[in-house]
């Protein structure tokens, strides 16, 4: 099946002096997905955004947006938006003023500007501060304005660099919801060190290391949401795994550590419901308290546990 890609990077190289921030990075982002960009400090996540958005020049490789070639503001204005990590607005500008200016620049028709600005301000819960000057806002509020500008006019591709940084827990939840409920056609790329959020928001993930793509796949494939279940039980509980193994020979059971029973199974031969009902019945019959059942491994655990990522 042909999957239309909104973005293709092929062999992209970006050097800063002798340092190769991107060292032949190749990446394909299918349309309509939310993709998390994961990597350690200096892996090249922010630089990737910078070269895609045309902030920084390539030394080698190609970038193709919407099958139309590299980023060109004349062609892509309003269709590609970026939330840069450290960029700041002028302190004297008003929230509405700055968003209206950007709306004009990206070509939103004058009759729709007010609505577009009000919509994004509603999303980030800043409608009541629309007239306020940037300097009167808290750090978190300023970050929300930066997020708001990225969604002006519902661009087809939005790149967010550490979007949750500096937000309070309520706003993090709101942002998560906002990103999950985005229009189906909108593609989002999130660069973040908060793997918990990546796991909750994104359906695809790309691991970058030393400027190269290490792995790109669905989040569920990495975390095993469809073929791994963990049972958090009493720390002192002793579980005899042999009977379970005999009941479900296609599954593998192990105690990851005291208090955590992990079951790995092939999704094609066993269903999650089957596994869950049999394992829970087994544990309850043996009076082993079950505190929590979770699907898959946490992305963070996978990332930290796998030295190749």
């Amino acid at each position: 099946m042909h999957i239309p890609h909104v973005l293709r990077l092929s062999g992209v190289v970006k050097r800063f002096g002798r340092c190769r921030a991107l060292d032949g990075l190749s990446l394909e982002v299918p349309a309509g997905v939310a993709m998390g960009l994961v990597g350690s400090n200096g892996a090249g996540k922010t630089t990737s955004f910078a070269v895609i958005a045309g902030y920084e020049r390539l030394h080698a490789g190609t970038i193709d947006l919407f099958g139309e070639g590299p980023f060109d503001p004349g062609r892509h204005a309003g269709r590609v938006a970026v939330m840069p990590q450290d960029a700041i607005f002028p302190s004297y500008a008003s929230v509405r003023g700055v968003l209206t200016y950007f709306a004009r620049l990206q070509g939103i028709s004058p009759s729709h500007i007010e609505k577009a600005v009000s919509t994004v301000l509603d999303w980030v819960h800043l409608s009541d501060r629309a007239a306020a000057q940037i300097r009167t806002l808290s750090h978190g509020m300023r970050r929300r304005v930066v997020i708001a500008q990225a969604f002006l006019g519902e661009p087809a591709l939005v790149m967010l660099d550490e979007p949750m940084s500096g937000l309070d827990p309520r706003e993090v939840a709101n942002m998560r919801q906002l990103l999950k409920e985005r229009p189906g056609s909108q593609t989002i790329i999130i660069s973040s060190h908060n793997l918990h959020e990546i796991e909750r928001i994104c359906d695809h993930v790309a691991f970058i290391r030393k400027g190269k793509l290490v792995r790109q796949t669905k989040v569920s494939d990495v975390t095993g949401r469809h073929h791994v279940v963990s049972y958090h039980i009493a720390m002192d509980a002793v579980v005899d795994l042999a009977p379970l193994g005999r009941q479900m020979p296609e599954a593998v059971f192990e105690m990851a550590h005291p208090g955590k029973l992990v079951c790995r199974f092939a999704g094609s031969t066993l269903s999650l419901q089957d596994v869950n009902s049999r394992v829970l019945a087994y544990l309850i019959q043996r009076h082993i308290p079950v505190f929590e059942v979770t699907r898959g491994d946490a992305l963070e655990s996978v990332y930290i546990g796998d030295n190749t990522l």
Partner: peptide, 16 residues
Amino acid sequence: ASGYARFSVVRVTRTE
């Protein structure tokens, strides 16, 4: 220097 230019140059060409 402040990064504010980044918000503009994704919306208009650098020359504009």
